[in-house]
Design a protein around this nucleic acid. Structure first.
Lengths: 219, 219
DNA sequence: AGTTCCATGTCGCGG
DNA sequence: CCGCGACGTGGAACT
């Protein structure tokens, strides 16, 4: 990894055109070749960048980075204040925990928390356009497709609606209900869901996890 | 901006839980307080981060960063290889050019480039599920909803379809046509648009901008 | 290589 | 401040 602090101008031309006037910035070149230009603010996103794979031509006071898609990043260096290289080695990688999959797992174990009498038929039930998160059966024997999201937004309603349109063509399933389950459901998603005849449930992750722990504690 | 290269472990607990085993990494603290932990690969996204505003407690071999939402990032330093601070100053900011808004503005000024006789009723016409980019009237007096995208994909077709379903319930508007306008329209979006009775137009940004410049030159 | 979908998305704008 | 959509979205999993 090469770490450079310099007064520079930057020009990008590719998916859009962008220009950065002369200012002091941090420029990083990672081992895989990707280039980042950071200012002293603005969260984790660089002002400009070029992802790997790419070609970097280092002309000293000017770097030209291009990629196969015809994008081009040009950095002109006016004054360099720091230029150092370090070998970081391979990163052992990130261990993540607690996203949508976890919510899906918890609901799969306790579908009854969504609705009295609801029972799981199977997780990741396949359709031609992708798997339905949970396929269940309600107390009256009707099939229920459940889409699980961390946050319920319009996209989630559309996704479930597409699944339903396929499930409803399968006569063996009979009538199919749709439920969008999320920790939070946006008002517009509620409006669209109502419009499409899709139900929605707000589920509490902490409560579910609590129930899960309690269940584990019994064994 | 503080730039640190060190062997460290990192733990994040907040919207999810994540752990980074001991390895050499680049740690950056920006002037606004946001903290980034970068490995030597993986494009522009840090392995871990905490956006501003936050509180950083520097205990020397351990940093604890917390924010108002109860998220917490802890970095334990084992060996520090570089620790330097530089003042970058305020960044003059990015000059962008060529995004959707610009395309929308250009089309709003010259709706006739989409279709002979098309006239603008209003930009950002509100519906219960969001604003339609351009609401126009065609040569025969019919209302036309135009969705503008840089790249026309399935999402754009569905978005327009949702708007149309609401617009068509408003009897005052009468028959409503839908047009997806983009610099490029994916085959699958064309198929879906045809299926939904939605028209599409490929628009050339450079040409539009040229016309725009010509118009300006007349005055 | 192309498509689909998630993301600690982030960012910017409008109400 | 929230809601909502764009983003050079990026990235991963799967076909």
């Amino acid at each position: 990894m090469r770490i450079v602090v310099a007064d520079c101008t930057v020009d990008y031309r590719g998916r859009l055109a962008a220009h950065l006037p002369l200012a002091r910035r941090l420029v990083i070149v990672k081992a895989d070749g990707c280039v980042l230009v950071h200012a002293d603010g603005g969260a984790y996103k660089p002002l400009n960048w070029m992802t790997a794979p790419n070609d970097l031509v280092d002309e000293g006071d000017r770097w030209i980075v291009t990629n196969a898609k015809g994008e081009r990043l040009e950095i002109r260096f006016h004054e360099v204040h720091l230029d150092t290289s370090v070998d970081l080695g391979e990163d052992p990688g990130l261990v993540k925990d607690g996203v949508e999959l976890e919510l899906q797992r918890l609901l799969a174990e306790r579908p009854g928390t969504l609705e009295e009498g609801l029972e799981l038929i199977r997780r990741e039930y396949p359709t031609p356009i992708g798997p339905v998160d949970l396929l269940c059966r309600d107390a009256e024997g009707r099939v229920v497709a459940v889409e699980v999201k961390r946050r319920g937004e319009i996209d989630g309603v559309e996704q479930l609606d597409r699944y339903l349109s396929f499930l409803r063509r399968d006569e063996r399933l009979g009538e199919v209900r749709g439920i969008l389950a999320a920790q939070e459901i946006k008002p517009q998603a509620q409006v669209l869901a109502a419009d499409r005849g899709i139900e929605w449930r707000v589920v509490d992750y902490e409560t579910l996890r609590g129930i899960d722990s309690d269940v584990l504690r019994l064994f």
